[in-house]
Computed example of a mutant assay.
Amino acid sequence: MKTILWATLTANGNYAQSSPTHPPKKEALDDFAAQAKAAGNFIVGRRTFEGMQASGGGAFADIDIVVVSTSTKELPGITVAGSPQEALNYLQQKGHQTALIVGGADLHNAFLGHGLVDELMFNVAPVIEGKGLNLLIDKDDYQYKDVQLLDFKSLGSGVIQLHYAVGH
C-alpha cells in the first residue's frame, strides 16, 4: 500500500497553524478534499480530527476515516486505530491501494519515525509563523533521508504544492 503524508507548511517550514483569525488557505483545503476523494480515505490524529469536526469538516460521507489514538477507543461512525500500522492494516483490509496521512504533527512524526511514508505532499502557504511544529524523522537521533521531487505546482493564491518520493 502506498502511503502519502499530506501537510500544509508555512514559507519558513513550520506546520501552518490555523485559527479563526488565520484560517487555512482555501486552495489547500480544496486539495485535501481532492486527495482524500482520490484515495478514498484519510488517517488523522484525534486532536486534529476533533478540530476538523469543530470547524464543520464533515463533508466526507463516502471516505474511510481512521483516527489514530491511544487514549480514545471509540468515536461514533469512525474507525479508531491504536497505532499507525494498525490504521494501515485496516485500510489495506478494506481494499485501499493508497493511504492519505493528514495530521497532525505527532501522527506525521509517528509514521515517519516508523518508516511508513512513501510520498510527501507539502502545500507551502504564503505565510511566516514565528511559532510552530516541525516534522521530525527521529526525535532522539539525527537522521537524514533523501527525497526525490516528483512534481510541483501552484494551487493558486500563492500556495505551492511540492510532491516528493521518500527514499527508504
Rank of each mutant, 00 (worst) to 15 (best):
P126K: 10
Q85E: 12
T10H: 03
D64F: 01
L112D: 00
A54T: 11
Q143T: 15
A28K: 10
I78C: 12
L107M: 11
A110T: 15
G58F: 13
I4Y: 07
I160E: 10
T3Y: 09
P20A: 01
D106N: 10
F42R: 03
A38W: 03
L88H: 03
I63C: 03
Y15S: 03
F42E: 08
I137E: 04
G57Q: 06
G132N: 05
I78R: 05
K73Q: 03
T79Y: 06
T98W: 02
V68K: 07
V102N: 05
F152D: 10
G104C: 03
E129P: 02
K25A: 08
T21V: 10
T98E: 12
T98C: 05
G77S: 06
D141T: 15
H22R: 00
Y144S: 11
A34H: 07
K153N: 07
S83G: 04
L155V: 09
A105I: 09
F152V: 00
H22S: 10
G95E: 07
D30N: 10
T79R: 07
S83M: 01
D106R: 12
I43G: 02
Y142G: 11
A28L: 05
Q93T: 14
A105E: 05
F111T: 05
D118P: 14
K25V: 11
K73F: 12
L88Q: 01
L100N: 02
Y90I: 10
P76C: 04
L91N: 06
G130K: 15
T10L: 14
Y164L: 06
I137C: 15
A165K: 09
L5K: 01
V80D: 02
E27L: 00
G58L: 14
W6T: 08
F111N: 12
V44N: 02
K26V: 09
F111K: 05
Q85S: 05
A39H: 07
L136S: 12
V44G: 14
K94I: 08
A16M: 12
